[in-house]
Write a protein that binds this DNA or RNA. Structure first.
Lengths: 144, 144
DNA sequence: ATAATAAAAGACAAAATTGTCCTCTATTAT
DNA sequence: ATAATAGAGGACAATTTTGTCTTTTATTAT
């Protein structure tokens, strides 16, 4: 569904969002430890997210990544788009380039419905929504 | 969503199903031409599908692939499982190994809903259902 | 018998994705 | 000034996926 890079991105954003709400900045090491992802790969992904303005960072001692209130309201589809592009949202389920309303593939309509649901879910879910459950230990971000 | 191999598999099955309904057997070349897929790669995929009993084949002159009535009633999820395994149906949206009801990832429930819809669609769609629209030219299988 | 075809297996190549490492620069708190 | 940290870029390796090619065998219609 999503690429590994995208999965890491989402989890990292959730992690940073949680810490930011508590007023903390988090370094790459802390993030990597918090969500159990590969360090250097994660660093590149965070740079990309930062470049696209989805999270903030400051250099120097006590620097690190953080998210202001606006960033914590960013919806999941923005993160997915930033890392995976729009392929999750636009491609044909059967890989047909020219599949569209006029020349639909056989599962075009059924597939569209699923995709609309997914899109809708991603567009209405803010990254900051998970903080509470994470704090309570009702959901979690590490992979093991 | 699906791998390329899986997309080819589904399209090939639709194609063979259509031809079989008309009483024809189709060789690999005809299939490759009919759905615009890479020949040798397609051959391996068809062998796999054949091995798993999702379609039939006969050797010799006028041999080729075909699907009996039972095969044409096979649902899409069987094809997906045969080629991609169950990863579409079981994995966590965020790539967490241990994500489950007890220790859900933050988007566990939302994601489950989407996946259930997809699963349901695949389980209730028979490969032979598309023949009519294909015949009428209302949907198509080539990628260009 | 011959020719046509799928089955099978393996080798290989190309491309994409994932992951690691290194170097240098910029910024900032102390 | 120094140290800590992110940013940037590039090189590279590992892995997975996709795709190509060759050879051999088995089967079957004619």
């Amino acid at each position: 569904m999503f690429s590994k890079a995208c999965e890491y991105a989402i989890r990292a954003m959730m992690f940073v969002s949680q810490k930011s709400k508590a007023g903390e900045r988090v370094g790459i090491k802390a993030i990597v430890n918090g969500i159990d992802s590969p360090e250097y790969f994660m660093a590149k992904i965070l740079q990309e997210l930062s470049r696209k303005g989805l999270l903030q960072s400051t250099k120097g001692p006590n620097g690190g990544f953080f998210m202001d209130e606006a960033a914590r309201k960013v919806t999941l589809d923005k993160i997915v788009s930033a890392i995976d592009g729009d392929k999750v949202f636009v491609g044909c389920g059967l890989g047909l380039k020219a599949c569209n309303e006029k020349k639909p593939c056989p599962i075009h309509d059924e597939f569209k419905l699923i995709r609309t649901k997914l899109k809708n879910m991603l567009e209405t879910t803010q990254i900051g929504e998970f903080t509470e459950n994470l704090e309570k230990g009702l959901s979690y971000l590490r992979r093991n």
